[in-house]
């Protein structure tokens, strides 16, 4: 007998609903360069479902995540697809009566891999204030892939026999060709995603130098995409090597010029993660007063990501992280 997971399905997997949206999304090449503040203000609405690019502490759109918290966006759904420091940033928004995160599709949340668990992310997930549905990283990537393909689900062969399945919204089905059981995972079209890339032109044609995690799927699945880029390049440069474009401009709604935008995360070929800063962030979370002061200093008390960078040591600090990234093989 085929079984269904009992977790909540937060988003409608109907591809026709997505098609109706994409039909009206403009493909024309228009200049989309704007500040992070404007992008978040225009494209992230209260109640939206949010996707976060990268991989936790690697190539994350830190500036956009800070801005979402700073603007006190509320009641968001979230795709927790190996979300570590990005989840930790958003969790800071569930505080003092505010609630950034309301619903989470969880494949990997709360932890920062070998660095341990975030006390504040744990607090919001243990308090019951956030609705949660369990997935695996691949299942969640396939949900994005299904939406990117414009179909309502994809079959996978994981999750069977586990509580991860019981607490998911996946469904067992029979393959119409072989009769084997497969796990159907429903398409996921986030309302908006934030993705950090190495280079973009003013229209949102993006290049990523390194592993792409699930970002190619995320960009295509999402109704709106905010791109933050280490560097804005000319469209002529894009046209010289069209094979390097991994996200096409018609997926993208905003392009923000954010050098060092993955800090304190790693940016391949540019700078390594700031392990000291991440350690301090983790440590202050254990003390409510210290944590409030820390958030005030680094998020609420600054108006722009560059001020955060300055408060974390600015160019001098980045130079050290750049050396760690580039000289890694010298040891």
């Amino acid at each position: 007998m085929n079984r269904s997971g009992n977790g909540p399905l937060f988003m409608n997997p109907d591809p026709d609903e997505a098609r109706a949206f994409f039909r009206n999304k403009k493909v024309a090449l228009t200049d989309k360069v704007m500040s992070v503040k404007e992008a978040v203000s225009r494209f992230v609405n209260d109640g939206d479902y949010l996707g976060s690019g990268g991989f936790g502490t690697n190539r994350i759109a830190t500036a956009a995540l800070h801005e979402i918290v700073r603007q006190k966006k509320c009641d968001l759904g979230f795709a927790g697809h190996t979300t570590t420091h990005d989840f930790q940033i958003l969790a800071a928004g569930n505080r003092g009566g505010e609630k950034v995160l309301a619903r989470v599709d969880a494949a990997y949340i709360v932890g920062l891999e070998a660095r341990g668990l975030s006390p504040q992310a744990r607090r919001i997930m243990q308090s019951g204030e956030v609705d949660v549905c369990e997935w695996t990283n691949y299942a969640l990537a396939c949900r994005l892939q299904a939406a990117a393909m414009g179909v309502s689900f994809l079959p996978v062969r994981s999750m069977f026999g586990t509580d991860t399945f019981e607490h998911s919204a996946a469904k067992e089905i029979d393959c119409p060709f072989t009769g084997q059981k497969v796990m159907a995972v429903p398409a996921l079209s986030p309302d908006v995603s934030v993705i950090h890339v190495h280079e973009s032109d003013c229209y949102g044609n993006c290049r990523i130098y390194g592993i792409t995690m699930a970002d190619l799927e995320l960009a295509r699945a999402s109704k709106r995409v905010i791109v933050t880029a280490e560097k804005i390049v000319t469209t002529d440069a894009i046209r010289e090597r069209p094979y390097d474009t991994v996200i096409p401009s018609f997926c993208v709604d905003a392009v923000c010029d954010v050098p060092f935008g993955s800090y304190p995360g790693n940016m391949p070929g540019e700078y390594f993660s700031d392990e000291d800063h991440l350690k301090v962030w983790m440590a202050v979370e254990a003390d409510e007063a210290q944590y409030d002061a820390f958030l005030e200093k680094h998020i609420y008390g600054v108006s722009h990501f560059s001020e955060y960078l300055t408060r974390c040591g600015g160019e001098e600090r980045i130079a050290i992280l750049r050396a760690q990234e580039l000289n890694v093989g010298d040891a």
């Binding site: 927790g80 190996t82 969880a106 494949a107 990997y108 949340i109 709360v110 932890g111 668990l117 744990r122 997930m125 243990q126 369990e134 997935w135 695996t136 990283n137 691949y138 299942a139 996978v156 994981s158 999750m159 586990t162 991860t164």
Partner: peptide, 10 residues
Amino acid sequence: RFPGSGGAND
């Protein structure tokens, strides 16, 4: 609350 599956279940 621990992280969850990540890629481990897959």
